[in-house]
Structures are given as structure tokens and as C-alpha cells.
């Protein structure tokens, strides 16, 4: 568990935001929303892996279930 996950997510957020701006300027708004959705899905998959790891660790620490 180290810092590059945060940089990865921040990079995805930044890139999707910039691509959004570019696409909006060339008035291709529907592609912009698709790019936002794609970025969101990628980040959500990463976050869900981290959350499941946290909850598994908590479960093992507290000996639940």
C-alpha cells in the first residue's frame, strides 16, 4: 500500500478532465461524457479493490464472521 495508487487515480482524473475540456471545445459533448464515464469506471475498479482489501484486513483483525 503506497503512494503511487493515489498518483494513478489523480492522473486519471486529471486526464479525463482535460480531455473533457478539449472535446467540449470541439463541441463533441457526447464523447466527453463517455470519456468521463470511462475514467470513472477505471477509478472505481481500483477503489473497489482497495476497499475490499481494507474490509478483508478488518475482518481478519477483528476475527468477525
Amino acid at each position: 500500500m503506497d503512494i503511487n495508487i493515489i498518483f494513478k487515480i489523480a492522473a486519471v482524473g486529471l486526464i479525463t478532465a482535460i480531455i473533457n475540456q478539449v472535446l467540449k471545445k470541439t463541441d463533441k459533448d457526447e464523447i466527453a461524457t463517455l470519456v468521463t464515464l470511462a475514467g470513472l469506471v477505471i477509478v472505481l475498479i481500483m477503489i473497489i479493490n482497495m476497499i475490499s482489501q481494507l474490509f478483508d484486513t478488518l475482518r481478519s483483525v477483528f476475527g468477525m464472521y
Binding site: D2, I3, I5, G13, I47, L54
Partner: peptide
Amino acid sequence: ELAAAVALAGGII
């Protein structure tokens, strides 16, 4: 919208 995701990831780490 990913600002909240980064905050959550930082909290988990």
C-alpha cells in the same frame, strides 16, 4: 468528480 475517489484512496492507505 474523482477528487472524492482520491480522498477515499488516501484514507484507505
